[in-house]
Design a protein around this nucleic acid. Sequence first.
DNA 1: TTGAAAGCGCTAACAG
DNA 2: CTGTTAGCGCTTTCAA
Lengths: 337, 337
Amino acid sequence: MKGKVRIVDVAKKAGVSVTTVSQILNGKGSRFSQETQERVRQVRDELGYVPDFNARNLIVGSAKTIGIIIPNIANPFFSTFVRGVETAAQAGDFIPLILSGDGNPDLERQYVEQLIQRTVDGLIIASPSVDQATIDHFLKANQIPYLLIDQNPIDEGDRVSTDDFEGAKMAVSHLLALGHKKIAMLSCYNPALNQKQRLEGYKAQLLEAGLEVNEQLIIESSLDKKGGYNASEAVIKTGASAVFTVNDEMAIGLYRGLGEHGLKIPTDISIVGYDNIDLAEYVSPKLTTVSQPVFKMGQVAFKLLLDRINNPHAPAQRVKLPVELVIRDSSQRYYGQ
Amino acid sequence: MKGKVRIVDVAKKAGVSVTTVSQILNGKGSRFSQETQERVRQVRDELGYVPDFNARNLIVGSAKTIGIIIPNIANPFFSTFVRGVETAAQAGDFIPLILSGDGNPDLERQYVEQLIQRTVDGLIIASPSVDQATIDHFLKANQIPYLLIDQNPIDEGDRVSTDDFEGAKMAVSHLLALGHKKIAMLSCYNPALNQKQRLEGYKAQLLEAGLEVNEQLIIESSLDKKGGYNASEAVIKTGASAVFTVNDEMAIGLYRGLGEHGLKIPTDISIVGYDNIDLAEYVSPKLTTVSQPVFKMGQVAFKLLLDRINNPHAPAQRVKLPVELVIRDSSQRYYGQ
DNA sequence: TTGAAAGCGCTAACAG
DNA sequence: CTGTTAGCGCTTTCAA
């Protein structure tokens, strides 16, 4: 079908010039006679001509491709996010090039480079480990539009985020309303901007309630199930009656760890997670958590990036999406004193 | 989007010709003086120059890209598989183009077409809905190497799979050994080859044990958590003392559904899943399941594809990876009569 | 040791 | 209505 059929072959066989073929096949051939148009299209089909993408891109400058760099596609948060981007991209006739950088800055730098090489029209970077140097060096130098997600505020560009501060406040406020006074927070190492804001929200809400912030109650661990599991003992030691975890994955790890120590949720300890991954309503007890519109975030991210591609000098856009507390069965009234 | 750093920019700044830059940066510059080589590389770094892939590819031919089509990247099985491919691809300096076709044949056909246009060197198709016509029309006609995963046996090409038949036998054998006699199977609609073989394994093992295969005990539902959840009542109605589910996601849905009906796992009913997703040891009770080397499967898939790309006429390779039964807490001895 | 020049296959001004 | 002519950014002879 493809093989070696080039535009000249079509042109020759149809008895016209390459321009004619090019224009007609690119939908810009209204000025040509109906007859010529038909003939060209017919020869195209006959020969099975398919334009060479590389040659075409070289001229047009756009590959209709965007790059997405995330830490790990196996993480539900990111895969949902990617699905959102994908959906929007597909509607805009773009193809997303998805790469998992695994939190490895070297690999990520390499990926950024490879994506630029492939003349992506823009980049969505959702990995906190891509650093400013890489961005300045490659993206700015090459004038590639990009969008950072959940990143430290190292840049003044477009941004889509969810209201992490408010989300954390809602979670803590819920626990306070249930009568909990000693509320632990399970946070992570090297928190990115969004995680920092959840931490701030936690503290702010406690202060608003007239309680003190006790740093002993803030535990750090890795952001996955294992991290939650490993933190179980530390959490138990705090003697808190409730825990707010910085994401659902950790909460699920905590479920297991607490269970192994003979603690019942929510009877012995209440838990509120963050993310509302689809698993949250399948664990037992169903997890109370803060829901972020992750899929929508992906869609908005693509839209913002596309706007930026089409209009490089427009003022930066910032979209902050609202979050929502989903109350399920892992949080319960505190009956202690 | 111009303003990209081009090879001439590097050449000018380094005070050499574009040829010199090209040769040096492509590792063919041994004939140039050490000093020139250093200088060129340094200027490259300074400017953040990245060669344009389209221009390069136009000349060189290979895009060092493979396409991967899967149903849904948010499914843990596929995301793990993709991670495996990704890892192997990265080592081979290839970039994977990942697309979720969502089980939509039209969309998938469109993706196949787009991937071919992008001159991918090969394709891994892990979606059961890509049909033979699409394959013949696009892949064979364009002589693009491809690899099918978990697909119906519509082709004689390379293949990587796991031993589904044996895996199912192991699961059922385990339940039989625990004294279960009435074992239901939770299967799926329109099973693909791998799922069919699990069904066959289930039947075969029952027959080997001298039991009859009762079609009433075979329930069909969709392959996700919701599918498992929705099938709960049907499962309960069978009166089986144990269930073998065709994947872990469904098992987790079943956990919830059975729980809502007041049934305890494994006291009232034993469950064995399939896949050993990382969640399996975080649910309560921890799920007994069949472990497939999914990540490795991804790696092998890339390797086979690469072999095929490099050697289009070599005989087909078939790799079948072994599976393993992981016994946890969701299966228990049956004390009924 | 180096560089000038010839394309790769295609699109798009600009003439007819 | 149609064709001529320049490139796009890069690699690769081939000559200096």
